[in-house]
Amino acid sequence: MQLTDRRPIGRTDVEVTVMGFGGAPLGNLYAPIPDEDARGAVAAAWEAGIRYYDTAPLYGYGLSEHRFGEILRGQKRDGFVLSTKVGRVLRPWREPPAHDDKFVDAGPFEPIYDYTRDGARRSLEQSLHRLGMNRVDVLFIHDIDIFTHGANQQPDMFRQALSGAYLALREMKDEGTIAAIGVGVNEWEVCEAALDEGDFDCFLLAGRYTLLEQKPLESFLPKCVQRGASIILGGPYNSGILVTGAVKGATHNYEAAPQDILDRVAGIQTVCQAHGVPMPAAALQFPLAHPAVASVIPGGRTAAEVTQNATWLTTPVPAALWTDLKGEGLLHPDAPVPGS
């Protein structure tokens, strides 16, 4: 497999490289990135052959979209695939919010949830202004999961999105404004519920089908194959732990990893080391073996991180590594693996 290999998004004409670029870090996720580092990261992605870029209004409250637009506007627009998201509109604030936030030194905007039909169109219009572009290719409804809204409010947000934003996305696809539509969340169960009710081309699923977690194999991924819907796999390192390993302070699902996760990662790492394979290489390559998965989209804060991701994607992984992971109970027995 080469990084420049392309796979279709659902039944659309959109094709993405098997590795994309996840844009959350460019929104100063957890720590600020100098503009020159951000430019260097995207330039390194382009040089490596990455032609799929994902962003969202949430990422740095417009900063990620602004940075992608500034850098990618110099390329021919038909030469890459770009996705962003709806579900929040950004409103300028006069004073910085008092609450803590994951995005540091972000744009001076407050994100307001809006999953209505008009809100989705307004969100896309705002995104196009920040990007400085006249279109995106793929548009996702963002964060209609329990992780974001809590168990009490999530059902109402889900219903609003399916009765509002989803209709806007369908209309925009029919108009030719966008080429593919989907849902971008942290929970596969919400993706499956959306697929049961709507005609979606793809799902951006963050962290839930990885070397560490394979629960979606039991129902959701087979349904995607049956319905012709693709998976864009965000967070392939499970928020970092599949890079750092089971060390003190390792992050899983945006928080400190609990002991059971640390133990499982330690087991995976031991098997990888026995075969002389960097664990992140196995983490990037594993999801792509499933026929529903079109692309993995790790982020990158610097050119060096992006280049390292590209190297890991093409690092040789012996078949015996996957066999041993299954034998140790560290990988779902029915999980497709590279080369199978």
Rank of each mutant, 00 (worst) to 15 (best):
Q2T: 12
T4R: 14
P8G: 09
D13L: 14
E15M: 14
E15Q: 15
V16C: 09
G22V: 03
N28Y: 01
Y30K: 06
D35Y: 04
E36C: 09
D37H: 11
D37L: 07
D37M: 07
G40E: 05
A41W: 00
A41K: 01
A48W: 00
R51P: 00
R51E: 08
T55L: 11
T55P: 11
L58H: 03
L58D: 03
E70H: 10
D78K: 10
G79K: 05
V81N: 01
L82V: 04
L82R: 00
V86W: 02
L90Y: 01
W93M: 12
E95R: 13
H99E: 12
V104H: 10
D105N: 15
F109W: 13
I112P: 03
I112K: 08
R117K: 13
G119F: 04
L124N: 03
R130C: 10
L131M: 09
T148I: 12
H149T: 09
R159L: 12
Q160S: 14
L167M: 12
A168T: 02
R170W: 07
G176Y: 02
I181C: 03
I181S: 04
G182I: 01
E189R: 15
D196K: 15
G198D: 08
G198C: 15
D199L: 12
T210A: 06
L212D: 04
Q214C: 08
P216T: 03
P216F: 07
L217S: 05
S219M: 07
L221F: 06
P222R: 10
A229P: 01
L233V: 05
G235F: 02
Y237V: 08
T244L: 11
A246E: 05
K248A: 15
A250I: 05
N253T: 04
I261V: 15
D263V: 11
R264G: 05
V265M: 08
A266P: 05
I268N: 01
V277A: 11
A282L: 07
L284K: 02
P291C: 11
T302V: 08
A304W: 10
E305P: 01
V306Q: 04
V306F: 02
V306G: 02
N309K: 05
T311Y: 08
L325W: 09
E328F: 08
E328S: 08
L330W: 12
S340Y: 04
S340V: 12
